[in-house]
Structures are given as C-alpha cells and as structure tokens.
C-alpha cells in the first residue's frame, strides 16, 4: 500500500469534485490498495456524509449510496417489493463484507481477473497498453459476451445485476451538477479503454440509487459458482416474470459473471413478453442473450451454462403455482 493522505468528509459536498479517491466500505478498494493495484494519493472517507437511508420515492425507493448491503437486503420494503435485489445481495460475499460494503461502493467494485490483481502481470485495465494476461492465459472466470481484444474481464458483483433487471437509476453528482444514469448503462464494455469500468466521470460521486415501482411477479436470482457460498459467480441469472393468463406479461432478465457489465438483452425480453412459456421459447431467448458469445478456452462452459441456467430459472418463474 502506497502512502496517502486521508480526510474525512462530513457532507457529500466535501467529496463531490474532490481530487481524491472516495472510500466508503473499503472492502474492495483496500483489498486492491494492499496489492498496489490501486495507488491513490488521497482518500476521502464518505462514511459520515449521511446518504445512509432507504426512503420511499413515490411508488419506488431511493437508496442512499452509503446504505450497507446488509441493510439494503434486510430492508422490509425491499424484501416486499423488490425481492430480487435482496436475493442478489445475499448471494454475494459474506455477512461480514455485506455489513461493511455500501450500495455505491458495490457498484464501483472492480473485476476479480487474476491478472488485474497481479501487478507483475500485464493488464490493460490496470495499466493501459501493457496487454491482457487473461487472453491466452487462465480465463475460467472471464467474459463470454462483450469482451474486446484488450480486456475480457467481468464485473464480479451481484447487486448491480439485480438493479439492472429492475431498471434502477443511479443518481450521481459531479462538479457540473447532478445527473442520472440507468443502472443497465452504468457499467461499460471494455473496448479499447478497459481502464474505465463505468460511466462515472472524474469528480463525480454516486448519491443514491432509485428503484421504480415494484414489478411484482416471480423474482429469482440464481447464482452458479464453484462453492455454495462466499464465491464469485461463474454465471448468475436475475429474472422477474409476471404471468397473466398463462402468458408472460413482463419478463426482465439480467446476467452476471459473463461480461464487463451486468448483461441485459432487451430483444430476449421482448421475445418472451406476451408469450406462453415453453422450453423452446426459453431456448430462443437464450439464443438472443448469447448472440455473439465467444469463449476464451477455459470459460467456454459458460455458454451452455448460461443457456441451461436461464432455461431452469424461466421454468421456475413461469410455474403456475409452487
């Protein structure tokens, strides 16, 4: 860990526009700083700026950026109206980490790519222009969708996958004022600038996440991984399906562990919407999701794994009664 200056912010205004790395829960940033993957000169601690409430927002909710993962998952309104979000959060990390990690910080979580984590290895995300160690290397955990020749890393989190499916909106504030970014658009594809994980601009800070009105229906988050708990997703599927008269009136899908961002495919959702459920239809939806999917060798299995998991999740979500 490189030396840094530490200051504590007392209001969001202290942090917005500051030339410093923001630290909230610190569960990912400190992890990376210890390995010198991250080497900020200045840290500004926002744990005492407020923004730690879950509040009603019309029919929806406004979640402060400092709301801890545990609090968000256990929030009665979230459990009742947006159970997908609770389930996704609870599928991630450990209780200890969820107690510390924040809503904003979790959105900012960086990839788990082995080569990103190793300062002696090439990594275009960590050190632009140095190459990608994972291409041709050990890439079991890596992206099958939306990757580039520069980076095949995945976004490793769970919460944002649910937020993407739920059409959440992220409210940020920067020197130029406040703006909103759809959760589904918050994370980027790597392209030739993999060093940028998301659309947040320099000096901007996440203030809150807004959830639109509850969708109801069946909400399922299925996370497939190498051990039953405390492991990152190989593939995760977030699904919200509202059935009406034997047809899918609403179908929302998002996928984790497969791309540099939570993966959402409107075409797949449209395919399902208004249709009666069937394995053939689920398979066509999977075709749409997996359009352009490409394995890197060790992660080829993620392509059939996503297809199968999606089929099982949709079958469960469209069951008439449990």
């Amino acid at each position: 860990m490189r030396p840094f200056d530490y200051t504590r912010a007392h209001a969001p205004a202290d942090a917005v526009g500051a030339e410093a790395r923001i630290i909230a829960g610190g569960t990912n940033l400190l992890d990376l700083m210890k390995l010198q993957v991250e080497t900020p000169d200045r840290l500004i601690d926002i744990n005492h700026v407020g923004l730690d409430r879950v509040e009603r927002d019309g029919d929806g909710l406004r979640i402060g950026a400092l709301v801890r993962n545990s609090d968000l998952a256990a929030d009665p309104a979230v459990r009742e109206g947006w159970p997908l979000l609770s389930k996704a959060i609870l599928a991630g990390a450990s209780a200890q980490i969820r107690n510390r990690a924040t809503t904003g910080g979790n959105l900012m979580q960086r990839t788990r790519c082995y080569y990103f984590y190793d300062i002696d290895a090439p990594c275009n995300k960590r050190e632009p222009g140095s190459g990608c160690g994972a291409i041709g290397g050990n890439n079991r955990q890596h992206a099958i969708l939306g990757a580039s020749d520069h980076c095949i890393a995945t976004y490793p989190g769970d919460m944002a996958v649910a937020m993407s499916a739920l059409d959440a909106v992220i409210e940020v504030e920067g020197p130029a004022g406040k703006r909103e970014i759809r959760a589904a658009d918050f994370h980027r594809l790597p392209g030739d600038t993999p060093q940028r994980d998301n659309e947040l601009q320099s000096g901007e800070m996440i203030l809150s996440v807004r959830l639109p009105a509850p969708l109801g229906g069946r909400q399922i988050y299925r996370k497939v991984r190498d051990r039953r708990s405390y492991a990152f997703a190989l593939v995760s599927v977030a699904a919200v399906v509202v059935m009406e008269a034997g047809r899918m009136a609403t179908a929302r899908l998002a996928f984790g562990g497969v791309a540099h961002k939570p993966w959402r495919v409107p075409a797949a959702e449209s395919l399902l919407t208004g249709q009666p459920p069937s394995p053939e239809l689920f398979d066509r939806a999977a075709d749409a999701v997996l359009a352009g999917a490409r394995g890197q060798g060790h992660n080829d299995f993620k392509i059939p794994l996503l297809r199968r998991t999606l089929g099982a999740v949709l079958a469960e979500a469209t069951q008439e009664s449990k």
Binding site: Y6, T27, D45, N47, S94, I97, R100
Partner: peptide, 25 residues
C-alpha cells in the same frame, strides 16, 4: 483481504472484517 473471516470483530454492533478497514475510519 477479507477472504477468510479470521479477523472478524464487531463494530457498532455489526460483524466486519477488520483487515478491510483502516483504523482511522
């Protein structure tokens, strides 16, 4: 690095990994 839980302490009523927190915080 928050991967084992051996450092678990309770801070303000919550269990956390003390390795993934700065004392100054």
């Amino acid at each position: 690095h928050g991967q084992c839980g051996a450092c678990t302490v309770i801070v303000n009523g919550r269990r956390i990994n003390s390795c993934l927190s700065l004392a100054v915080m």
